[in-house]
Amino acid sequence: MDRNSEKNQFRGIIPPMITPLLNEDELDFEGLGKLINHIVVGGVHGIFILGTTGESTSLPYPIRHRLVEETCNLVKKRVPILVGITDTAVSESLKLAQTAKYSGASALVAAPPYYFNLGQPELIEYYEYLADRLPLPLFLYNMPSHTKINIEPETVKKLSEHENIIGLKDSSGNTAYFNKLLFHMKDDPGFSLFVGPEEIMAETVLLGGHGGVNGGANMFPELYVKLYDAAVTGDIKKVRELHALVMNISAGLYSLGKFGSSYLKGLKCALHLLGICNDYMSSPLNKFRKEEKSRLVVNLEEIQKKLQASKILTQNKKKDQ
């Protein structure tokens, strides 16, 4: 694969899609269809399923495979689909990769296998072993808060030499780390570098990053696309305006209650209130209780007013109709 060719380069906003569920063992198929259409018509550049925001590690294996199949079927090649295959067992990652390939996905994403604290040489061995056997290109996924392993910039540089490893998604929230990645990879423009936390997406793009895998784009995709476009063109005034809206979303929807999963609870609850999909969460997580939900209703209404004032929400509604 020539990752430097234009058709193979990944750029822009690729939402980490939530997984709509009815219960522990059943997808919310109606909600899945609504969510995918809502995201795609919002102008995103791809969809990432089975990541942290998709509760991937909590889902039964049959649900993971079914989600891949149904998502690819519903998207119908309108945008590229990236599939998370993170697992502690390589065989399970490879099985899911095959489902992704047969279903029509474009690329795969894998964080380091959690539990064993791999050193950097072991991490290189693991990813090379995995990439050699994958039927699709692979994105590295740096998520040290969940895996307890940081993929060091030097390790990324080494792994980028593998022809089947084409990029990295960084969810560390560490801008110093991301800047080091940009420095180490400056001579390899075909290697895509994405950031997860939406609060720093615009600044990383301004510095040379390739886009964001931002959870808020599940709710308001056009906002994040416009922010990305403003950063790419260097429109600082527009970046400041739209970034302020993103920070309102972060403060109002992701920080309610004293939960380690407040971000995901808030995101799923908001999507439910917007009439898009169910807010059921796979164990060990649970959806917001009445108190947090009531506060989120108020905050969501305020955010919608601000988006309407910026003519973003109105445009999204027109596109969805």
Rank of each mutant, 00 (worst) to 15 (best):
E163C: 06
P15E: 08
S160G: 14
L22I: 09
A217W: 04
C72S: 01
D132V: 00
P80V: 06
Y115Q: 05
P112C: 05
G51F: 00
P221K: 05
P121N: 01
T86P: 01
P112F: 01
A110Q: 03
E222W: 07
G209V: 07
G252H: 02
S250G: 03
P15I: 09
P62D: 14
N286W: 00
L181W: 06
Y177A: 10
H146D: 10
F288K: 00
E6R: 10
G266M: 02
A100I: 07
A202I: 08
F139I: 15
K268N: 10
G33R: 12
L108P: 02
K258Y: 14
I312G: 05
G275H: 03
P153H: 04
E302L: 12
L22D: 14
E30V: 13
N179H: 12
Y224P: 05
K186A: 15
S145W: 05
G234R: 07
R3K: 04
N179T: 06
C277A: 06
P60I: 10
S294A: 12
H38D: 08
P60A: 11
E26N: 02
A202N: 03
H184C: 13
L285I: 12
M185V: 03
D170E: 11
P137I: 09
C72H: 05
L273P: 04
G216R: 02
E291S: 10
G275T: 12
P113Y: 03
Y61S: 06
F191N: 10
N142Q: 13
G211A: 08
L118K: 00
Q308A: 00
V68G: 08
R11D: 11
L207W: 05
